[in-house]
């Protein structure tokens, strides 16, 4: 409860949360409230924004409604961001936990494995993975998850390394508790705060990655996304800059709000920074 309280007192974090909440609402209910498909050609191409009150953000190169694109794009961006982060956590947390808890050769093995992924530039790896498995929402989400779990594993390992020597963990060992129990019930709950913070930032970078892939034409061809919109408009950027600019702003605002929220979470969960240490 303390965390929520100090988070609500953090204005910057609440701004981030507010914007993000708005995007989530748009992603969930927008398609039902706003009548229009992102694919249908509704007006003349290159209609600038604020000219036609029916299509307030104008139309793209084929005369499709930009606002509809934004609304549907919010869905895919947030979905890919959340799902890929969840998968990355599911891979990274167990790996890091085992490496940090057992140490020794288990640690060596798992960390060398992690480093294989870290030495390959993550974007290049994601491009290759998506290209191999044919672009679809599933392959994109999977590829983003695969390139973004190593930092999770590293972080969790570090937390476990420092917590496994804590006296309450030693006491649990003396109690004869199983290693699984110690990992799940003694150490993991105490290392959650940095993981939550990292996860919020990972959602942001996953959204960026998805947009970059779509920009390169590696997006799911059946789904409208912000990255696809920018990619499709890149050839006409001199005639119709707003076509790149509007989805670009959407991406920037979402990522920024996630970063603000992550920063706020970090302060709220890290008692040393927030200054109201429990004692």
């Amino acid at each position: 409860m303390n965390v929520i309280k100090s988070l609500t007192q953090n204005k910057v974090a609440m701004v981030g949360f507010g914007i993000l909440f708005m995007f989530v609402v748009i992603a969930l209910f927008g398609p039902y409230l706003y009548d229009g498909s992102p694919w249908r050609m509704v007006q003349r191409p290159f209609l600038p924004p604020f000219q036609n009150s029916n299509y307030i953000l104008g139309t793209d190169t084929l005369g499709r409604d930009v606002l509809a694109g934004l609304i549907y794009g919010a869905r895919i961006s947030l979905l890919v961001g959340l799902v890929s982060t969840t998968i990355a956590l599911l891979i990274g947390i167990p790996l890091g936990a085992y490496a940090g808890y057992y140490g020794g050769w288990v640690d060596e093995l798992l960390m060398r494995f992690t480093e294989i992924f870290q030495t390959v530039p993550s974007f290049a790896l994601a491009v290759v993975l998506v290209a191999i498995f044919e672009p679809s929402v599933y392959s994109i989400t999977g590829a983003i998850a695969i390139v973004s779990w190593p930092p999770v594993a590293r972080l969790v390992r570090g937390e476990f390394l420092s917590l496994r020597g804590q006296e309450y963990v030693l006491a649990a060992k003396l109690n004869g508790q199983s290693n699984r129990n110690i990992i799940m019930r003694e150490i993991l709950p105490n290392s959650l705060s940095p993981i939550i913070v990292l996860a919020s930032l990972m959602v942001a970078s996953a959204i960026l990655l998805e947009s970059s892939l779509s920009f390169l034409g590696l997006g799911d061809p059946e789904i409208m996304s912000w990255g696809y919109m920018i990619g499709a408009a890149k050839t006409v950027i001199r005639q119709a800059w707003w076509l790149s600019f509007i989805p670009g702003v959407a991406i920037a605002i979402t990522v920024l709000s996630l970063n603000l929220l992550g920063e706020g979470l970090n302060e709220a969960l890290n008692p040393k920074l927030s200054g109201n240490r429990e004692s």
Binding site: Q166, E167, Y168, L170, A171, A172, L174
Partner: peptide, 16 residues
Amino acid sequence: RKRIQMVFQDPYASLN
């Protein structure tokens, strides 16, 4: 394990 038990030094670090 149950026949030999330990009380730790730091009361702030020894309880989860």
